[in-house]
Design a protein around this nucleic acid. Structure first.
Length: 932
RNA sequence: GGGCGGUUAGCUCAGCUGGUUAGAGCGCCUGCCUUACAAGCAGGAGGUCGCAGGUUCGAGUCCUGCACUGCCCACCA
């Protein structure tokens, strides 16, 4: 069956076909390994995208990196589980459905809780698969059979279990505290969900009359409307300006309420007037001060950020309208001292950008310290390693300065808090399932708390809940701890930190099945693991993808690059390759389309190399499906994984030995790069090898052997080499470019594939025995020679079609012999009519060029532009002499000779010798040309 | 206010633990449809590695300071 590939690679249809194939064939499904299983295990949890999500570049980077690592492990023989799922994403999803409702002119509250939730489920059923569909298009090799949703029954049960246990352990408490309140979402949000933004605002100074005196005390504020809830004025003890006022009272303007002047460090003498108004119900610092001084908390702003009844005449006004009115009134009554421009940092809701209002409310919290301590330890003692390492310190700092976590949200969509209040006695009952009656008074009217849990509460549990916790499952034994977690630093605290806290707490005492060989993303030699309760052993933090101008992508800026659109234009493989090639650890990626264009060209290059190979394979009728010798499918050319020699790779010629050597070297480098998450390095190595060495040199060099008139016993081994190398290169490349490699690998085997997919074939491993230094050196000389001839041809402007006779001088007899043996290659690749060897240097002749090892001289009648040539030569000589001077200086330095390693000194000596030869050659040519 | 990155060719970026004459892709210039590939091939131009000191036999690489730039964290009215 002859291969018939189109002239250029069109990824669209091919990628779709394989993406489907991988899913329908369940190639990446992982059954629970039975007891006694000895193969190493690799487990990775997909950071669940929001069900409402659309694939963006961040997802794609994240998933590309994960898929590369996962495919790599799978090909190396690990039991490889990549567990996918989606997150119910409380606020985001609720907002989405509310928006839909709004289009119908309906509101959430009109619908009622139950109907609303039903509606959300409906939405989820209908659109929730969008993001996973997009993942499939990327080729993410996850186990779809194990796909989870954070609101699945089993996961929800686990959430309740965790909540109840924490409550029983006294690690969850409820109370009236000041929290960040989003008036649009109508819920409390955690500190992490507030982002601060610098905005130009005003600072107003207001004076409060001191009771029983004609004095005033002046305070400054950026939120004057909160003065309606003031319950004190604070001054600093050391501030002598106010000493005489200690213990006095002031009359709160507009409200005419008497409030005390208290002494507290809250007030700092250096700032403003040194006196500060205290509003315990609407400012976190004031709240603390209020507790210290037992001040009343007067709430003046409601759920919707409108003034409430406590605000007297301002009740019902929006907070900003109230601000305006309060200021007007203060001004009118002579209490407003000044108004200044002021830059303040405003807290906004991460989701909807509404300005957050610090507000008093009843919330549930996790006492975080005990959890954080253990989570800190796990990283400190090396049970978890974080790459790049600088994130380790960031993590530890955060864990040290952590505050209690507000976990309740006033939403409807999410895990409802498993707590009920008894209508009769107001007792709070926390339980795994709805209780039938009150344990205290026996009352049967129980009302479940309406709050739901922060989304990160449930996602923080995923490393163990997705494996069956709280049941003691075989999956947990085998797959917990996960091997690796790959995520962006943007959710380091939201998610990563929480997973570690929960994992260390709830999986304490857990031990991974000892029979399972421990997988390591760090290859060998890693420190012994200390603690099996951690959710994962390694963490790799990747950077952010930015747009070409390095701007953070955001919907509001409109600079979002849609990965699917890029994929449409360049192919998934090219897009994946771009992300991999640009993902140097630690730095952000400015996504650059021109790179993707380049990698599309790379895909095309691979495609055409395949066409070339198939053309020859078909002609001589070679079938790779039935290999001629005892080759195992997927073996690296020249070796097998067990180290057993195989005879398939023919090493008769220099180029054969050379390419085999190069392949093994590159294979070692790629494996090492992947082990260290150096994706860019892995990508670049394969790219350079395949294009710069395999295509540019090897294919060109073997063409004569494949020519139509070449005898079968010459063509056949060459073809076999091609197939072997190609097969191995495809496998080497597969983790990064899964689609084109699958397509071509299947074609190599002409439908008689030994395995269902290249994804299951072994990953190439380097065989040191195949690294051939001599071949590499000789080949380098040959390449040099060819390039030198091409150079002179270009300088002399020899027409491309014209073959010229060339003289060669090689200083060393071995090199001369080597060149003679490969003269055909030189003649062909440099378009030489005839190569003749001479015994004397040709350096001084016009139309010549060379290195320390050889000279080439092109016999061609053309006037040489002596002036230009002179200038060029002088420049060259200058460079050479600079090299010589600096080299001599070093070699003349005893310190250098004493301290530098021997190989550095040796290399320098060798280099000096070569430079000396070059210097002499250049000089003689200058003389010959008669340059001034 | 603390902390962390970045600054290398016109553009986008590599350059790991200091060791030959600092690399790639894109762009640019010259020439080629050489039957795998014009998404290609051959050749070429282009860099005082942000600035100033220091350590070292040797610095793009390590240290200090500065400048510009980006990010994270923080309750300063």
């Amino acid at each position: 069956m002859p291969h018939d590939l189109p002239k250029s690679y069109e990824p669209g249809a091919i990628e779709k076909r394989w993406a489907e194939f991988w899913v329908t064939e369940k190639l990446f499904s992982v059954p629970t390994p039975p007891p006694g299983e000895k193969r190493p295990v690799f487990t990775l949890l997909l950071p669940p995208p929001n069900v409402t999500g659309r694939l963006h570049m961040g997802h794609m980077l994240n998933q590309t990196q994960m898929d590369i690592i996962v495919r790599w492990h799978r090909m190396r023989g690990f039991i490889t589980l990549w567990l996918p799922g989606t997150d119910h994403a409380g606020i985001a999803t609720q907002m989405m459905v509310e928006r839909d409702l709004a289009k119908e002119g309906k509101k959430r509250r009109e619908l009622g809780r139950e109907k609303f939730i039903e509606r959300v489920w409906e939405w989820k059923r209908q659109y929730g698969g969008a993001i996973t569909g997009q993942m499939k298009r990327l080729g993410a090799s996850v186990d779809w059979d194990r796909e989870y949703f954070t609101m699945d029954d089993n996961l929800s049960r686990a959430v309740r279990e965790v909540f109840v246990r924490l409550y029983e352990e006294g690690l969850i408490y409820r109370g009236k505290y000041i929290v960040n309140w989003c008036p649009r979402c109508e819920t409390a949000i955690s500190d992490l969900e507030v982002k601060h933004e610098e905005v130009a605002g005003k600072l107003w100074e207001i004076r409060y009359p001191v009771v029983g005196s004609s004095e005033f005390i002046t305070v400054a504020t950026t939120r004057p409307e909160t003065m309606l809830g003031d319950t004190a004025i604070a001054v600093n003890e050391k501030d002598e300006r106010y000493t005489h006022l200690h213990g006095k009272k002031v009359l709160l303007p507009l409200v005419n309420r008497e409030i005390p002047i208290i002494v507290d460090d809250l007030a700092q003498p250096e700032f403003g007037t040194g006196a500060v108004k205290v509003t315990p119900a609407h400012d976190p610092n004031d709240f603390q001060a209020g507790l210290r001084h037992n001040l009343p908390q007067i709430d003046v702003i409601d759920d919707h950020a409108r003034m409430n009844a406590n605000a007297g005449p301002y009740a019902g006004l929006d907070r900003y309208e109230a601000r305006k009115r309060v200021l007007e009134d203060l001004r009118a009554q002579g209490f407003l001292v000044s108004e200044k421009d002021y830059t303040l940092s405003l807290g906004k809701c991460d989701r909807c950008e509404t300005v957050v209002e610090p507000r008093l409310s009843e919330q549930w919290f996790i006492r975080i310290k005990p959890l954080a301590d253990r989570a800190k330890q796990a990283v400190e003692n090396g049970s978890i390693t974080i790459v790049p390492e600088n994130y380790r310190q960031i993590y530890l700092n955060w864990m040290t300065n952590i505050y209690d976590w507000c976990i309740s949200r006033q939403l409807w969509w999410g895990h409802r808090i498993p707590a009920w209040t008894c209508e009769g006695c107001k007792e709070m009952i926390v339980a795994r399932e709805a209780p039938a009656s009150c344990a205290k008074c026996g009352g049967e009217k129980l009302e479940q708390v309406s709050d739901v849990l922060d989304t990160w509460f449930s996602s923080g549990l995923l490393p163990f809940t997705t494996l069956g916790w709280p049941e003691k499952t075989r999956d947990l034994e085998v797959f917990y701890p996960n091997t690796l977690m790959i995520t962006g630093f943007d959710i380091l605290f939201f998610w990563l930190a929480r997973m570690i806290m929960f994992g260390c707490h709830f999986m304490q005492g857990h031990q991974q099945d000892a029979a399972i060989e421990r997988a390591s993303a760090q290859a060998e030699g890693e420190a012994e693991q200390k603690d099996d309760s951690v959710p994962f052993r390694h963490v790799y933090i990747h950077a952010l993808v930015r747009d070409a101008e390095r701007q953070k992508m955001s919907k509001t800026k409109g600079n979002v690059i849609d990965p699917l659109e890029i994929i449409e234009r360049f192919g998934t493989d090219a897009t994946r390759f771009t992300l991999a090639a640009m993902a140097a650890p630690g730095t952000d990626i400015a996504f650059n389309e021109s790179r993707t264009e380049g990698y599309r060209a790379f895909a095309n290059k691979i495609w055409n190399a395949a066409r070339f190979m198939f053309m020859n394979v078909d002609r001589i009728g070679l079938m790779w499906g039935q290999p001629p010798s005892a080759v195992q499918p997927g073996q690296s050319p020249g070796s097998s994984r067990s180290g057993e020699e195989v005879s398939i790779f023919h090493t008769a010629t220099l180029e054969d030995r050379w390419i085999l050597s190069r392949f093994n070297r590159v294979t070692a480098e790629v494996n090492a790069a992947l082990a260290a998450y150096r994706f860019h390095e892995a990508a670049n190595r394969v790219y350079d090898f395949f294009w710069g060495e395999f295509c540019d040199w090897y294919l060109e060099l073997i063409k004569p052997r494949l020519a139509e008139n070449s005898p079968a016993d010459t063509a056949r081994p060459a073809c076999e080499n091609l197939l072997a190398l190609f097969d191995a290169s495809l496998r080497l490349l597969h983790p990064i470019m899964p689609f084109i490699t699958e397509e071509l690998w299947q074609a190599v085997y002409e439908g008689k594939v030994p395995l269902k997919s290249i994804a299951l074939a072994p990953y190439p491993q380097s065989d040191e025995k195949r690294i051939d230094l001599q071949a590499e050196t000789e080949m380098a000389v040959l390449q040099d020679l060819i390039v030198n001839i091409r150079n002179v041809r270009a300088e002399l402007k020899v027409e491309p079609k014209v073959k010229v006779p060339v003289e060669v001088f090689a200083a060393e007899p071995e090199m001369r012999a080597m060149i003679e043996a490969n003269r055909g290659a030189v003649e062909r690749l440099a378009n030489v009519e005839k190569l003749t060897f001479v015994d004397h240097s040709l350096a001084r002749l016009p139309g010549s060029r060379g290195t320390a090892r050889f000279d080439v001289h092109i016999i061609f009648e053309r006037k040489i532009d002596a002036a230009a040539e002179c200038e060029k030569l002088k420049k060259e000589l200058e460079k050479i002499e600079k090299g010589i001077t600096s080299g001599q200086r070093q070699l003349g330095n005893e310190q250098f000779l004493a301290k530098a390693p021997a190989n550095v000194v040796d290399n320098l000596r060798k280099q000096q010798q070569e430079l000396a030869v070059l210097q002499q050659k250049t000089q003689s040519k200058l003389t010959e040309l008669g340059c001034g």
